[in-house]
Amino acid sequence: MVIRTEGLSYSFGSQQVVKSLSLQVPQGSIYGFLGPNGAGKTTTIKMLLNLLKTGEGSIFVFDKELQTNRIAILKEIGSLIEQPAIYAHMSGRENLLNRAMLLGVNDARVDEMLALVKLSNAAHKKTGQYSLGMKQRLGIALALLSDPKLLILDEPTNGLDPNGIIEIRELLVRLTREHDKTVFISSHLLAEIERMATHVGIINHGEMLFQGSIDDLQAISQPLVYIETDNTVDAANLLTRNGYEVADVNNDSLTVPFTSKKQMGVINGLLNQNGVTVFAINKQQKDLENLFLSITKSN
């Protein structure tokens, strides 16, 4: 395990924000740390970086206890917490050079990182003039600068456009597959985590609701087939008669549990053949709220 916590808890005053968390992050994984805003994700991440004094419990990173091996552990971690911390009066390149100096990293690596996050053209521009997406990319470059074994990223795709999100996702997948890095990434978007994570931890109100591989999660988070028709009631009756379980019906749409793409085609054909006009039919992921409901039910 790259990260292992035992009974990790934290309180701000009388409010307990992290409750007895036991994280298990295996090596080479992309661990998606999922939870709505205010669930305790950032607090947990700050504890992993020794920025907050651990209330209770213990943290092991690379099998070493964090408090007593702080510097040795931090050497192997690159992090991006909340919005990227960037000096606005300096250019992107200067921000990286400054960090390179502190980390004892070769200057050539700075230009490599700029190219990696596609900021070479804006390298000499003051970061105060960067867009949110550019700042986020620079933040990722800063986190990657020391070529760390473990990357801890707090909502790294915030503010990125769809292309940027795809690029980051591909980069993280490449880092874990080809360079044997481990990525711990937090998000409040289930879909985003599902697309890249190999392991998932779901946290709400400071408590871990689920932890396991992405396959385990998919077993719980069953996707749905979403269908819009001219007559949803008739469509629902027709599907029920044909052995489908209709999860939900309203005036505009109905949903059926997803099993395969082929099944979607069959449903479409069936509806059309029986005179129901299908306006739309697609696969839909459960959102985080519904997933919480399923998890709580399944527990």
Partner: peptide
Amino acid sequence: ADTWKTLFSLP
């Protein structure tokens, strides 16, 4: 720059 957190997570 909100950089205290980065300064104190340096090795």
